[in-house]
Amino acid sequence: MNKLLNVSTSPHVRSSASTSSIMCDVLIAMAPAALFGIYQFGFRAFLIIVICVATAMLTEYIYEKAMKKPITIMDYSAAVTGLILALNMPAYIDLWIPALGSVFAILIVKQLYGGLGQNFMNPALAGRCFLLISFAGKMTQFFPDGVTGATPLAALKAGESVNLLDMFIGTIPGTIGETSVIALLIGAAYMLAKKVINWKIPFTYIATVAVFALIFGGHGFDMTYVAAQICGGGLIFGAFFMATDYVTSPITPNGQIIYGVCLGLLTGIFRIFGPSAEGVSYAIIFCNLLVPLIEKVTMPTPFGREAKK
């Protein structure tokens, strides 16, 4: 033998899953919602998706280049952030606004806190909330040329009735990616099947919202109302694609259940007792802040160290 042998500690094999393969799976899972958004809102939706993803990746590249750090854009985490932000945008917004949101998400929320894995808030959502506060009017403008119209949840809050089938298919006003429940569920099923996410956070989140709406919604035992609460306001998008963000959700199994319940409670409070009909984005970034505490109280007991009966 001429070559020297490699020596390292065990294990000497690794699974095929990598950060980039997981991020690619998330991108694939969002594709149905993105495609439906483009179908529904046209070329502008496509343009916003391209702008958000490109700006996010470019911002990461420039920052890392300037800081002489390893370039990590090929792990696609910036692309995921860009796409989530794009799907949270109304299609008729001025194009510089989503670009600004992307820069905020990547530069301020992700990179300044140390890059991938270190941010304490979901970057895309923090970007969205930043834009929502800064440009409230433009961010809730869901029709072209100043035509006004209400989202189903706003209509519901105003006491009007909604069409559940439209909500399920997605032919309702809303942001690019949040409207079509069926497209989102296809993506969610893909992530669950590929074990990119598990059921704990999304299911406890949605179930808590449903129970909360049933008790405090003021509609009694009205399943149409509960179903509208579940299908509307980006809850499905938030529960499967944003609340499950690895970095900003608890790593402990019990913590994930508590986190899902917290999300559901906050979303319910914001929606039913707050001035706005929505609440998913704020609930998630608020609960992001609780993650370290939730993890602290839900550390699992090591095998064989359980209290003796």
């Binding site: 991938l116 402990t252 199994p253 095998f303």
Partner: peptide, 22 residues
């Protein structure tokens, strides 16, 4: 090795019910 993304796969895999990420 790259940055931890806190995916929790290590927690699921640990037969001793530990949190390797921590």
């Amino acid at each position: 090795p790259t940055a931890c993304i806190r995916c929790g796969r290590c927690v699921e895999a640990c037969p001793s019910n530990l949190v390797p990420q921590k």
